[in-house]
Design a protein around this nucleic acid. Structure first.
Lengths: 355, 355
DNA sequence: CTGAAAGCGCTTACAG
DNA sequence: CTGAAAGCGCTTACAG
């Protein structure tokens, strides 16, 4: 296999067409071409067509770098995060990337320490630095009014992902986490589970409260009393989930099902059960929340709520990009609620009370 | 909690310092500032210091957009991939991002279908499009000479990650996969395993051959004959690993240990063992390769080879960025071999032959 | 509805 | 070792 020849002769390489070339071909000024590219409305239709034809035949693509320099935009949007799981962050990222590629934007990632100690310097860097056109704020950043305020002060539009509380000044994208948790709990109850353990998520994430709220509500609606010893405080990490699961499995009576607030903790629960010699779902049913990759690699596979994380990232970036440069954010784009669904895999069985 | 005040009055907002400001303060020309920023070597040391002081006191950061427009570089590098696992891709990405942030570069991600059918249009888009300054090529792209040649023809520097075969015209970063697999096999043999099952990786990835080669060599060096029925062809996916593991576990005699060519398949093997009612590591030892997140969320946790994926991405981007614009790639930067290590967790036990 | 001019903040030749 | 000029490919006022 003969690898790697010399470079081809580039003498005949075509140069990329510029706006000037388009203008010449269409016999208009570059200004008009620019207008066609940006607000078609202000140009006569016949002219628009002429220009469009020239663009087409020259295969012209606007140079985003020149556009950034001349205009005020940087064509960068930021994604800032601290402690979400890698899986969550990368799904969000890939989703955002998708919209960015569509609109010719770029993503810059800013990661913060879990304790948010470095928040000030990072924000300063962002605001003072390359000039980001907008920022995507997932939990827990999206629940920190002081941090958000800094972006607003710096005139950087933001969109929040799954915020704890809505705010009608800032667009956000989310799913109905409370209802999803409600559905999942009801699903377990319908399978005859009554002693259901619950592992709560990180207290800094709004979703944790919503998920627990859905659990509580379903239990109440089904007249089942929640036992305090079956509720444990986790932090969304595998390790925290493992600890909680071990405590739960040591209770008497042992819960017949455990609902963990995310997949990492649910998977940890499955591990803890294996460690304790319990079989799943025979001895214990386990469910999670999120449907990240972890849910697909246990035995049995995890029954969980599919959260459309990628789609949320995609939509967030889309909204952000379409708000940049607009005078102010109009009332329409507030809350975007994406659909979820419960995905049944192998980690739940109907409970058969011992007779 | 009063959320979100009005924007602050921006009348007094400082404008970002430009090179001109630095030049004025240092009493030199912008040209000199530019030189200090790029090739310090050509400027008198005293002048350099003066300029540096001005940069410092003005908190000057070069505007990368202007730099791109004026220079020929786009300050983008690409990461192209097809079927590596999400975990692998995102580690690589985060690593590359780290170097990019250091040098003021951006990453653009290009993902291809697994069958590579869309390769031509994607490459055309890349080459004709925003002008990428360089490309990071992980497997299996890095093993496709025709694809690489297209980048070379377009004068886009590339660096390969874990290529199947070296080539002295193109820099690459990798680890010694064969030796690592050798070590892992020897580790298993030292624990008294003789009937060792092996699940091979995707045939398109160079690493698959290297890993199997290391296995073969260690077995040979220890005078153990490899049984054909204990070698199965996987494709690096969980599903493929699961199938292979089921076949392996049905053999008679059953292997006492299974070495899967990556973590996803090793984790699938653990699942298959659980499904078969086998306990790990009591009835079966399992090891993997890569040390991705999957390795930490099974019970027991997986003993595996830690592959420095993040570091490989970081180094690849670093090399690439430092080659951009340089006349040609000089002999020194060819092969970068990063260290690996074997991480012992809970999935291996010493084999006690039945007496 | 359309255009001529100036400028975004750098770098690349070209001089000295 | 250092500088004055031109220009990268667009957009933003400003005119008409």
């Amino acid at each position: 296999m003969a690898l790697f020849y010399l470079k081809k002769d580039k003498t005949f390489m075509k140069k990329k067409a510029t706006m000037q070339d388009v203008a010449d071909l269409a016999q208009v000024s570059v200004m008009t071409v620019s207008r066609v590219l940006n607000n078609k409305s202000l140009v006569r239709e016949r002219t628009v067509k002429k220009v469009l034809r020239a663009i087409e035949s020259l295969q012209f693509k606007p140079n985003t770098v020149a556009r950034s320099l001349a205009g005020k935009k940087s064509y960068y949007i930021g994604l800032i995060y601290s402690n979400p799981s890698d899986a969550y962050a990368s799904q969000l990222l890939f989703g955002a990337l998708k919209s960015c590629q569509k609109y010719g934007y770029n993503i810059v990632i800013e990661s913060l320490n879990e304790d948010l100690k470095d928040i000030d310097s990072v924000i300063k860097k962002i605001i003072g630095g390359q000039s980001i056109d907008g920022m995507i704020c997932p939990p827990p950043i999206c629940n920190r009014p002081k941090i958000l305020q800094k972006f607003i002060d710096a005139d950087i539009p933001i969109v929040r992902i799954s915020p704890e509380q809505k705010c009608d000044k800032i667009p956000c994208v989310s799913m109905d986490e409370k209802q999803a948790a409600y559905d999942m709990t009801t699903y377990l109850i319908n399978k005859n589970h009554r002693d259901i353990g619950f592992i709560m998520g990180h207290p800094d994430h709004g979703g944790s409260k919503l998920r627990y709220g859905g659990f509580q509500e379903s239990m109440a609606d089904n007249n089942i009393k929640i036992k305090d010893n079956l509720i444990q405080q986790g932090y969304f990490s595998y390790e925290s989930g493992f600890k909680c699961a071990e405590i739960l499995l040591a209770q008497n009576p042992r819960p017949s099902a455990i609902f963990a607030s995310n997949d990492d903790m649910a998977v940890a629960t499955i591990s803890a059960a294996h460690k304790a010699g319990l079989s799943i779902p025979g001895d214990l049913s386990v469910v999670g929340f999120d449907d990240t990759v972890a849910a697909g690699i246990t035995w049995p596979k995890l029954t969980t709520i599919h959260q459309p994380i990628l789609e949320m990232g995609e939509l967030a970036a889309d909204i952000l990009i379409n708000h940049i440069g607009k005078p102010s954010i109009d009332g329409e784009n507030r809350g975007h609620i994406l659909p979820y669904h419960l995905v049944e895999r192998g980690s739940v069985a109907a409970h058969k009370p011992k007779s």
